[in-house]
């Protein structure tokens, strides 16, 4: 009955441009449209501005240390200013003062910014990649796979991992990269999986999934080209929130001094704490306030971007 074999009388490829160019244009258009919606959200824009500000702040570090500052004095870890008593309050030479062992607070703050970005983004990326893959697989295949991963997620959610890491950290000092990976993996198998699984579940019962199956699509094809693209906006949203949680955990663990990280915002507060200056925190405010504020604003910035993205991803939240 298939005597109507494909005829190519409409001519071969009558597309005006190569296909990748068209797709690129479509992607750009949809990004532009989403940006328009995102711009409407003040809280999201504030977040973006804060992140850019932190970016500039962090990018200034290598410039400062190579041009203005003397590495002997301003090195965040081994620097020492022999010209004054420590900790010294903010002054012309040390804009944010020095810590108990004579290191410049501003230099420490700047030096740490880039690391915090790297830690946050790296662990959030790991979280989202694992969360999306596991959530989608659990939703699509169900059964044993679903039960297995959901119980793991429950355990991670319920188990207090920060205290555990404090105890483990007392024995094995985790350095920067392993810590980012552990936070990413814990996040990926934890709460995010449940949220992304819920989304994947609602996608996988839509009629277009049946339609793809009738078209002859394999399970792999359906997951990769239908379910994941429809879960991805939510993944991206939760990536923002993951950054926040990774930074917070790092700050907490650094504060307890159980990480093998030479300098970070949490480490700065830790330094003040072990030297006993936090007992008189009002007088020695420059020892903890800059780092504390940086942690708060940095986490808030990513959270606010997440809130702004929420309105893009979830049309029901939009004001108009």
């Amino acid at each position: 009955m298939n005597e109507l074999v494909p005829t190519h009388e409409t001519g071969p490829a009558s597309l005006a441009e190569p296909i990748w160019k068209i797709r690129w244009k479509l992607t750009r258009r949809s990004l532009r449209q989403n940006w328009e919606i995102f711009k409407e959200s003040r809280i999201g824009m504030l977040g973006i501005i804060l992140i850019i500000a932190f970016g500039i702040f962090g990018a200034m570090w290598p410039i400062m240390i190579n041009t203005v500052w003397d590495p002997m004095v301003y090195d965040p870890v081994v620097g020492f200013d022999p010209m004054m008593m420590h900790p010294s309050p903010p002054s012309g030479t040390h804009l944010l003062g020095t810590d108990p062992i004579g290191r410049d607070i501003l230099a420490q703050l700047m030096h740490s910014t880039g690391r915090e970005f790297l830690l946050g983004v790296l662990s959030a990326l790991i979280t989202v990649v694992i969360g999306t893959a596991v959530g989608t697989a659990a939703a699509y295949y169900g059964g044993l796979i679903d039960t297995f991963f959901m119980r793991i997620a429950d355990i991670i959610l319920l188990f207090p991992f920060i205290p555990l890491l404090v105890v483990v950290g007392a024995m094995v000092k985790l350095s920067f990269l392993p810590f980012a990976i552990i936070m990413g993996v814990l996040g990926g198998f934890g709460g995010i999986t449940i949220i992304l699984k819920a989304q994947a579940l609602s996608v996988s019962v839509r009629p277009y999934i049946d339609a793809a199956r009738v078209a002859g699509g394999s399970n792999f094809h359906i997951i990769v080209s239908h379910i994941i693209p429809n879960v991805l906006p939510l993944s991206f949203l939760y990536m923002m929130f993951s950054v926040t949680s990774a930074i917070l955990s790092e700050a907490t663990l650094s504060f307890f001094g159980v990480l093998n990280i030479d300098m970070s915002w949490g480490m700065m507060i830790h330094t003040a704490d072990v030297a006993g200056y936090l007992f008189d925190f009002a007088r020695y405010w420059w020892l903890w306030a800059p780092a504390g504020l940086a942690i708060t604003l940095f986490c808030a910035a990513f959270y606010m971007v997440g809130r702004g993205l929420d309105e893009v991803v979830n049309p029901r939240l939009r004001k108009r």
Binding site: P6, H8, T10, G11, P12, A13, S14, L15, I19, A212, A215, G216, G217, S218, H221
Partner: peptide
């Protein structure tokens, strides 16, 4: 998904 034709043929 059924691997029918080249890109140009599909498009036609």
């Amino acid at each position: 998904v059924n691997g029918i034709g080249t890109f140009e043929e599909r498009e036609a």
